[in-house]
Design a protein around this nucleic acid. Structure first.
Lengths: 136, 136
DNA sequence: TCTTGACCTTACCATGATGGGAAGGTCTAT
DNA sequence: ATAGACCTTCCCATCATGGTAAGGTCAAGA
């Protein structure tokens, strides 16, 4: 299987497959006489694993750790759960930050009359000319 | 005022002030005879505006647009509200994505016994060996 | 006055994950 | 034999920020 076919089969772009190889996330595959990379179903399986982990928001580093655990027959599932739990916490922190931004912005938009008057509470807030626009 | 003092006064690092100047977000300030950048309260005010917009998750490009509107005395507040509203939508989309990830991960962690057994539903899901782990 | 340390300048490199493109080699079907 | 679809490596760009190095400047104290 060539890299393009492996890309189609795994959902990981050829570009990224080469990149994952370059950074050591996956092992260099064997090559044909004309230097083409050759992949088998094992490699495709690994690439699918990586894609799924990335889709769930794991960083490449975390993905590498999960991959190592996946391939380690003696691993304890507790390790995996720890990685996942920490990742959940990080995601929830990020969500809370975004929700805080949205809350502030919604408040500002709500206060904005949105017509042709040049007066604008949103800009006033950004400029810091209003006294505590939150908590009115 | 030197760049370090402007940084302290605005909360924007000296590094970023130079960067904002370089990309044209802010105007090059005047210089002393020894080529030091000189800032006044107007510039600090602008930098604070930028910092606040960045804190609210506006990209530098959006921040530039808001800045232009802020400095345009004839602007309509509706334009500002449109930028903010679009930004809220983008943030909410991002939040939904993250929440979806968290939901899946929580389910997986919940299914994981987390002991020393090598069997692990989280890895099984990543590997795609389980039939639809979601919606059990 | 000289020195020291804290500041300033520019220029380059790095991040993380991905895409784009160029220049050149290879394979397959016509 | 040739066209076109693939492959190879190498370099560049993103976005916002931090770091570092080499060199110039300024203020305060000995």
């Amino acid at each position: 299987m060539n890299i393009g076919q492996a890309a189609d089969a795994s959902g990981v772009s050829a570009k990224m497959i080469r990149y994952y190889e370059q950074i050591g996330l996956i092992r260099p595959p064997s090559r044909t006489g004309s230097n083409y990379r050759v992949y088998g179903s094992d490699e495709v399986h690994i690439l699918r694993f990586i894609r799924r982990a990335r889709t769930l928001g794991f960083s490449i580093e975390e993905t590498g750790a999960l991959l190592a655990l996946w391939q380690d027959k003696t691993r304890a599932s507790a390790e995996v759960r720890d990685i996942a739990s920490e990742h959940i916490s990080a995601l929830e922190t990020k969500i809370a930050e975004l929700e805080s931004m949205v809350g502030t912005l919604k408040h500002l938009v709500h206060c904005c009359h949105g017509d042709n008057r040049p007066d604008c509470p949103i800009l006033d807030d950004l400029a810091g000319t209003t006294a505590k626009s939150k908590g009115h």
